[in-house]
């Protein structure tokens, strides 16, 4: 697990968060197609990250908390489609707010993933 995948995921999820806030403020719902393209790109990156994470976890000597690490990887992948589905069912500000929760959850998970990996590096050194 390295910064090259965490950094773009974090950047994309924060960009999506800002965009979501703009949509909520402007009362633009349901979200535009362009927004869903961004979410799709984020989801692709998250799937890549999950695979990279599984491989890295299997290959590493670091004492990473495996269960927690895998749980965060799975959560990041699951949370975007669930958020998108709720936003499409609830075509109001509240539905879009669910998307804000989803992308911020991804950002939080990225920080946790990076922390889990780095703490293990210190402990293993």
């Amino acid at each position: 697990m390295t910064t090259w995948i965490v950094a773009p995921v974090l950047a994309l999820s924060l960009a999506a968060a800002v965009w979501t806030v703009v949509m909520i403020v402007r009362a633009q719902h349901p979200p535009s197609d362009a927004y869903f393209v961004l979410l799709g790109a984020l989801l692709v990156l998250l799937v890549v990250q999950m695979v990279v994470g599984f491989v890295a976890l299997g290959a590493t000597d670091r004492p990473v908390e495996g269960v927690t690490f895998v749980a965060y990887l799975l959560t990041t992948v699951a949370v975007v489609p669930v958020g998108a589905a709720l936003a499409l069912v609830e075509r109001s500000r509240w539905g879009t707010a669910v998307l804000l929760v989803a992308v911020l959850t991804v950002a939080a998970c990225e920080l946790r993933l990076e922390a889990l990996w780095d703490v293990a590096a210190v402990a293993g050194a």
């Binding site: 958020g83 509240w94 669910v98």
Partner: peptide
């Protein structure tokens, strides 16, 4: 679970 409830269900 509709309107604001949808957000609460998510949270």
């Amino acid at each position: 679970s509709t309107g604001p409830g949808r957000l609460l269900v998510a949270l």
